[in-house]
């Protein structure tokens, strides 16, 4: 399984990648905002997207909307990992078709739980 990790802060990308590696995911790639992530996703080969919301260029929510609007990527599970905690935003993300929503700061256990849930759903 190939995962794309998108965050404008390189430290957070490293943390998420390390945690994913701990969970047994080794095929990881990264991008620093939606604008650099989107061409990668369009080119194909990714199975899962973990993205931040607030990023310059293209935000995570716009990236999510792009993913859902493109037939090639529409079915890809997307997990938002963000500091944004307003209800209005969580609802917006849900309406845009997010598969999981984690607020920062988060724990390794939360990440594992949400990922397990996403893939259990996908399998079921």
């Amino acid at each position: 399984m190939k995962i794309l990790v998108v965050d404008d802060f390189s430290t957070m990308r490293r943390i998420v990648k390390n945690l994913l590696r701990e969970l047994g995911f080794t095929n990881l790639d990264e991008a620093d905002d939606g604008q650099t992530a989107w061409p990668k996703l369009k080119a194909g080969g990714y199975d899962f997207l973990v993205t931040d919301w607030n990023m310059p260029g293209m935000t995570g929510i716009d990236l999510l909307k792009n993913v859902r609007a493109n037939p090639d990527t529409a079915g890809m599970p997307v997990l938002l990992v963000t500091a944004e905690s307003k209800r209005e935003q969580i609802i917006e993300a849900a309406q845009a078709g997010v598969n999981g929503y984690i607020i920062k700061p988060f724990t390794a256990a939360t990440l594992k739980e949400k990922i397990d849930k996403i893939f259990a759903r996908k399998a079921g």
């Binding site: 965050d7 802060f9 430290t11 957070m12 943390i15 390390n18 500091a83 920062k104 700061p105 988060f106």
Partner: peptide
């Protein structure tokens, strides 16, 4: 792992 997660402060 604890040390790694603590570095999340940089982003926040």
């Amino acid at each position: 792992n604890e040390i790694m997660l603590a570095q999340g402060f940089q982003d926040l």
